[in-house]
């Protein structure tokens, strides 16, 4: 009887483990089936690289949305990565224990806030701020822009990157730092040459986690990014990332032909972008691993 239970438990767990993988697969199939009608009418290339978006006239060009997604994500990473890395280095290497104990729960809290709160905060603070500083860079902006979206996103992915890289850095044995220090290296030299190098793999993984979150984040970005279906020319322009496109329009497509199919395809494109970045990250990780031995 006990053996039977044991065998059963392992089978059940096996099935449950495969479940998430199965879901990914189902999503891909679903998106493909629903996106097929538009692919049947228009070549994929023109869908991906045309900038004209006028569903009423039957024009579905995803290029502005793809660029919107990439721009917002790039801004978010450029802002978030250096700050989060320095923060986690400070917390693990320099901060007195009291500071660590004070900051850590705050980071956890930041990670748990619903994204709509970030969105509201972005509208109240970041958007006006961007509108205010745009003239200094020789432009004008309503504030609802790529920059605002990127900044809000950056703040949202801080906790992820800080948390994971902090874990990675603190798992490096103290004796390794001592080895470097005992050769007369300063603390900063030790961090730069030894700690960061040793933790590089984990830090890349942390950045990829942040990146994935940034690519997919919908609500907070949608609220501050402007939602203008044009390819942005500068960070002060409005943009329209893919998640925002889908969330804004799905359910309000009326009976425009192919609109529904187009949005499904947009979701598919987003999925592919996320996949591509994940695979790239995997490749980089393998490289790093090989070099580190």
């Amino acid at each position: 009887m006990r053996l039977l239970k044991d065998a059963l438990a392992s089978k059940v767990m096996l099935v449950l483990t495969f479940f998430p993988g199965l879901v990914v697969f189902l999503i891909i199939i679903g998106l493909y089936l629903r996106g097929r009608p538009i692919l049947a009418e228009k070549p994929l290339f023109s869908l991906l690289f045309s900038s004209s978006w006028a569903p009423g006239r039957g024009d579905f060009g995803f290029f502005p949305f793809i660029m919107g997604t990439l721009w917002v994500t790039a801004v978010a990473l450029i802002v978030a990565v250096p700050i989060s890395l320095l923060a986690s280095i400070y917390l693990s290497e320099y901060a007195p224990r009291a500071v660590q104990e004070f900051i850590r729960p705050m980071i956890d809290l930041l990670a748990g806030l619903p994204s709509v709160i970030y969105g509201v905060w972005g509208v109240l603070l970041i958007v006006p701020l961007v509108a205010r500083i745009a003239p200094f860079f020789g432009g004008t902006s309503s504030g609802y822009s790529i920059l605002a979206g990127g900044l809000v996103l950056a703040i949202m992915i801080f906790p992820t990157i800080i948390y994971v890289s902090l874990e990675v850095i603190s798992s490096i044995p103290y004796e390794l730092r001592e080895a470097s220090l005992s050769l007369g290296a300063t603390k900063w030299e030790t961090v730069k040459h030894v700690v960061l190098k040793k933790g590089l793999q984990g830090i890349i993984a942390a950045i990829v986690l942040g990146l994935s979150r940034a690519l997919g984040e919908t609500m907070a970005v949608l609220m501050v990014v402007g939602n203008i279906p044009k390819v942005p020319q500068s960070v002060f322009d409005g943009g329209y990332p893919l998640p925002a496109l889908i969330a804004n329009n799905y359910g309000e497509m009326m009976s425009v032909p192919l609109y529904d199919s187009a949005l499904m395809l947009a979701a598919g494109v987003l999925l592919v972008i996320v996949l591509v970045f994940n695979v790239l990250a995997r490749i980089i990780l393998v490289r790093v691993e090989r070099r580190a031995g």
Partner: peptide
């Protein structure tokens, strides 16, 4: 402190090679 440490070489319990 770096001046002090430079005067001494340390061998630890488990060899700690630097990641290079």
């Amino acid at each position: 402190v770096t001046h002090i440490r430079k005067k001494m070489g340390l061998l630890s319990q488990k060899p700690q090679v630097l990641p290079m």
